[in-house]
């Protein structure tokens, strides 16, 4: 049924000298099964927005309707809402508290009041999603590496079997190999499970490769919303918001400026490589003639 946000506004510390407007007049429709990249500079309202989607924050004005449930309505089951919309915070490994990996992942399903058997099934399923072997079950999460801890934390949310998964900077602070691994797993998860995925990031590279739709936030409003190529072709506007198009699309536009006939809508390394190789081949062909 998707998520629908209407005229959403939110002000932090309302009525105090430290008042700060975080969101103003946000309108969004998110359909089931979309893969959305949510990008924006620090303080653009991304985190405030996603906390509205599982009822951690309630709209001060406007409304948020998740799978037909209005989050401001009295008597709405917040536990159920938070099960449906799984939210993985930034640096989720900081929320780990149990003494074994298994117990920590089981925390969410346990709060849902499921049977032992059901919990067991879900924990193992979640572990396989994030690529943790069953031998990890009885290890202490505090002995694991940073990337492994993060995967435990993500599995903790996945074990609740949400229909929408929101990840806030899931790759932040990881080394390039760890980034690659996490993002690949998220991509695979999306393709296998048909969940709606919202990936929050300020790295264009990460988002460009895997998101089908991109929403750009700026100063608490939705500044752009559309397909990746449409967004990245507006590099100048992005730069004004403190964001950059992926480096590869900067390279492409520089090549075009220098007169190479290359497609302007290229924003992934793979496609850029193919296009440049093609150009090189044509050139070579022309020379030999």
């Amino acid at each position: 049924m998707g998520i629908s946000i209407k005229n959403l506004e939110y002000v932090y510390m309302q009525g105090s000298p430290f008042e700060k407007k975080a969101l103003s007049d946000v309108n969004l429709e998110i359909k089931d099964g979309e893969f959305i990249g949510l990008i924006g500079h620090t303080g653009s309202g991304k985190s405030t927005l996603i906390q509205h989607l599982n009822g951690l924050l309630k709209p001060q004005t406007g409304e948020v309707i998740v799978n037909g449930k209005n989050t401001t309505q009295k008597g709405v089951d917040l536990k159920e809402l938070r099960q449906e919309v799984g939210l993985v915070f930034q640096y989720p490994e900081h929320q780990i508290f149990e003494d074994t990996v298994y117990k920590d992942i089981a925390f969410g399903p346990k709060n849902m009041g499921l049977s032992e058997q059901e919990i067991d099934e879900r924990v193992k399923e979640a572990m396989s999603y994030v690529g943790l072997e069953e031998s990890f079950c009885n290890l202490s999460p505090f002995e694991l590496s940073g990337g492994q801890k993060r995967r435990v934390a993500i599995a903790g949310v996945l074990a609740m079997r949400p229909s929408t998964l929101i990840l806030d900077e899931p790759a932040a602070g990881l080394d390039p190999a760890g980034r690659e691994e996490i993002l690949t797993q998220i991509r695979a998860l999306y393709l296998n499970s048909k969940m709606t995925v919202i990936l929050v990031s300020h790295s264009m590279e990460d988002v460009a490769r895997i998101a089908s739709r991109i929403i750009v936030m700026n100063r608490g409003t939705v500044a752009m919303d559309g397909k990746a190529d449409k967004i990245f072709s507006r590099a100048d506007e992005l730069r004004k918001m403190g964001l950059d198009a992926p480096q590869i699309s900067l390279l492409v536009s520089e090549l075009r400026r220098r007169g190479l006939p290359i497609d302007a809508n290229i924003y992934t390394i793979e496609r850029a490589k193919a296009a440049i190789m093609l150009l090189a081949k044509e050139k070579k062909g022309a020379q030999t003639c």
């Binding site: 599982n54 915070f89 949310v157």
Partner: peptide
């Protein structure tokens, strides 16, 4: 907030 998101 993170624990509430896991149903705490």
């Amino acid at each position: 907030k993170a624990q509430q998101a896991r149903g705490a």
